[in-house]
Design a protein around this nucleic acid. Structure first.
Lengths: 245, 245
DNA sequence: CGGAGGATTGATGCTGTTCAAGCGTAGTGG
DNA sequence: CCACTACGCTTGAACAGCATCAATCCTCCG
């Protein structure tokens, strides 16, 4: 059986941005390229930023906390989630290098953000950031566009959670994750899963058991191959058909 | 038994904006107040707008169509939804007077928008609208804020679809709708439901039968009272407890 | 009066949950 | 070096909530 548990320590393939996204140690490019912002706009933002580092399980911010900052992830991955009073959890998404957090810039954070492993990010003071935006309409437009895509993905999630079967959810999740890795230049044969089964379950509206069983079945059917720290997507076409897009 | 079917014709209480939102017939205020935009910003927008009227079931736009326009609803209600190739549908939300549609301003619409009854809206040519925004950072900020709230509601929906029971979904839906009516100045004892059971089901990730049964049970328990065209919220507290917020 | 469309209601079944072990690997301390 | 523990993952059996299938009802309207 090719099923192995996923190590909880630092991921075997740490989610660091590709080296070309960073300058030297003393001239670090804090704002990641992955968001595809023009160089001039990133340069305008960088003076405002402060570096943050988190260990696994540390929280970057909590839901409903006053949103004093906006963040841009530079390495690692985070889970974004909401809790119900009785403990039920919905992971609304995962953040990867290049992603902005708190972009809606409301007074309070809409979700909590926890590090899935070691994470680095840059922090911007929200009000200063908003002042910067007021003077830079094109940057503002870019961020607005990013939010538009986030909203579109949110609608994908609604469809997934409201209308798709467990198999379809898992297939869609895996392909979507691969897609994201490709876009940030981290495509690879093996799809890393920096999040645990529980995070996946809480993201897809399933239980941990259903996620585990579905993974196991896909592995038996040679659709995927479960490896330490992630999965290998073996039969991409079948997954695509399963995801029912 | 207090269950009656809901008429399909023009709603008995048509969703028109309160009269004070409109000027006379010749000096119509096209952009609704409900979005709480400052007067100056609405005045800047109005010259760009053209009036649109839709009958029941007519489509304002379809998913993936090139988004040449942005809209602001002035009267009536619409369902916003996505379809899967096999016909499964997810209603991502409903639009009411004052709501903006297509605000993310991507090249294509993320959802389809169908009129639930007679609808009027104002249409803005998207590129002209974006030009206007570039010159009006504060208007841009306002729209960004509106999108932030939309994103927050999207996350509420994810929690609802992923983690709530049928009862909780229905209760949350009813209270949320009342909340929205209050905010646009249309609060009333009776909660109008301009959408059909199928729309509600497709919104909440349930079947039409489950929606109908849950409504019937809430009615039997004197939590709500089903009336033609909507429901009356009788036991607000119990609903609030049921919604498990 | 009769048809159409939506809503309701009942019987039955399936998908995914719940509950309960058991497994595998990493980390720890004797 | 090898128990021993902890933690996450897997697996199995029984159950439940919601879906599915199939009538039937109600109201509007021609």
């Amino acid at each position: 059986m090719s099923i192995h548990s996923i190590p909880v320590g630092p991921a075997p393939f740490p989610l660091a941005p590709p080296s070309y996204l960073c300058g030297g140690v003393d001239k670090v490019r804090l704002v990641s390229l992955a968001t595809a912002l023009p160089l001039a706009e990133r340069d305008a933002m960088e003076p405002l930023s402060r570096r943050v580092a988190l260990d696994q399980r540390q929280s970057l911010y909590g839901q409903d906390e006053p949103a004093v900052s906006v963040f841009n992830v530079t390495s690692g991955a985070l889970s974004l989630y909401r809790l119900l009073p009785d403990g039920r959890r919905q992971v609304t998404g995962f953040a990867f290098p290049g992603d902005f957090l708190g972009l809606s810039m409301l007074d309070r954070f809409a979700v909590s953000a926890d590090a899935l492993g070691p994470v680095t990010a840059c922090r911007f003071e929200r009000l200063a950031f908003m002042d910067l935006l007021r003077g830079q309409p094109s940057l503002m437009m870019h961020l607005h566009e990013i939010m538009g895509h986030e909203l579109s993905r949110a609608k994908d999630m609604m469809m997934l959670l409201g209308r798709r079967t467990a198999d379809e959810r898992i297939a869609t999740f895996l392909l979507g994750l691969r897609e994201r890795y490709v876009r940030i230049g981290r495509s690879s044969v093996t799809l890393e899963l920096p999040m645990g089964r529980l995070d996946i379950a809480d993201h897809l509206g399933l239980t941990i058991e259903t996620v585990s069983r579905t993974f196991a079945r896909l592995d038996r059917d040679h659709c995927i191959l479960i490896v330490p720290g992630g999965v290998r997507l073996v039969d991409h076409d079948r997954l695509a058909r399963m995801s029912a897009h």
